[in-house]
Design a protein around this nucleic acid. Sequence first.
DNA 1: TCAAAAGTGTTGTGTGTACACCCATGT
DNA 2: ACATGGGTGTACACACAACACTTTTGA
Lengths: 254, 254
Amino acid sequence: MTWIIFFCECKVRTRAIDILDYQHPAVTVDIVLFTIMQEDLKVLLVQRNTEPFMGYWSLPGGFVQMDESLETAALHKLKEKTNVDDVYLEQLYTFGEIERDPRARVITITYYALVNSEKFTLHPSEAVSDVRWHSMYQQPALAFDHQRIIELALQRLRNKLGYTTLGLQLLPEKFTLPELCRVYEIILNRQIDKRNFRKKVAFLDILEDTQETTQEFSKKPAKLYRFKQNENLEIQLGSKNVFDPKIPRSLTGQ
Amino acid sequence: MTWIIFFCECKVRTRAIDILDYQHPAVTVDIVLFTIMQEDLKVLLVQRNTEPFMGYWSLPGGFVQMDESLETAALHKLKEKTNVDDVYLEQLYTFGEIERDPRARVITITYYALVNSEKFTLHPSEAVSDVRWHSMYQQPALAFDHQRIIELALQRLRNKLGYTTLGLQLLPEKFTLPELCRVYEIILNRQIDKRNFRKKVAFLDILEDTQETTQEFSKKPAKLYRFKQNENLEIQLGSKNVFDPKIPRSLTGQ
DNA sequence: TCAAAAGTGTTGTGTGTACACCCATGT
DNA sequence: ACATGGGTGTACACACAACACTTTTGA
């Protein structure tokens, strides 16, 4: 009898703990916003003006409000800091180590985002003193676990570059092939053979010729291309992988 | 009952505003636990006995406690439901739509996990009436957005199968090549050429011959292999991708 | 005429895929 | 002897990687 009562009590109390007395951790979003400027891969950082980590740089982000989805929250934070709202945004990972914020239990859902440099220069919020672009390859000291987050974002970006058309997000509407190639070189941090690159892009058939040229980057005019908007962002090319036979090698095959 | 709880919850959350000037959403973890049994891919599901979605099936999971990291929380929930604790666990995605739980704002960090069938049969918690394995290819009606979560998990599992050795997590320590091949066939839901499969596995050089054989599955004895534990889980094989030239094609090259 | 970047083809090699038969054993 | 699943080799196709010279223009 006692056991039954105890059992019931436990059950009730467990539910009570879950729903009533349960302490909710704080939830934030943090965004790794990439762009390419001055032939360099940049990340947007914000300088902290409060403890902890006062003076350190951190990712733009903030608390998730009750009336916004995670993605919306991320977009809001970005808009707040940069005034840019046309970005490519993708969830990265969720960090929830107990001690990642010394003040309280904070779980952060991280995103990474890409803006093309042109859109950015139209809203040069870098003027705001405590919000600045930093070279990915030369960062200041970062607060919390943000270093780790940025590294993961870069890794993901590099990976996805290979099987998606993500790179196009970093360029204006019209761009030249050498420009696109440079985007890849900058992100991957290594040289790419331009002949092979052109060949692959041509084969993908995701660009259309605008019939225009530009001499912005060279004396010889370079053709300007535009991304075929109707094309899917996820491009599956080439041999897929180890244990995946029986898929015919055609673009339509996936 | 539900209404009382809901009311109380509102009250508590209102107080939270006063104190922190910020409402914290509830945070849960949900786990998609896969195994292979009876030549079929199974997912562990729990039948709900409360509203909302009473009677529907849902993923094992629960609230994240303040003193456990997300991954720890996920492991705890699994242990609770299945008594299995030696699993491969990996974060999947975080869902935070405002309306995903009709009761309150709940953000869930989802994981997927793999157990080998042998470990599972040692702790047959399927006996527990409201916790059961269901065929991935024939599921009951699912609560919340759990259908979507499971689908994402399957997709991820299939993808990762190609460039990792994840499949090995679903087998006991010693296994035969036909068994491993069957794991891939079951998960990918398609036939695989066994000659090509063996060739690739041999080339990967991640298995060691145990010098033993088994006749469990056939009359002709099949060699038993063991996973070389020191090998990395992430195997990069074959051509990498579209925009990634200049990487020599060697296993050491990554 | 020179410098600077755009543009262009070919070849070898590795990896994916298709395909058919013999082997070892229990019944 | 036969049924069952284990085990093996070859040939073709395709994508990746390496590589060097010509073209167009501005200065």
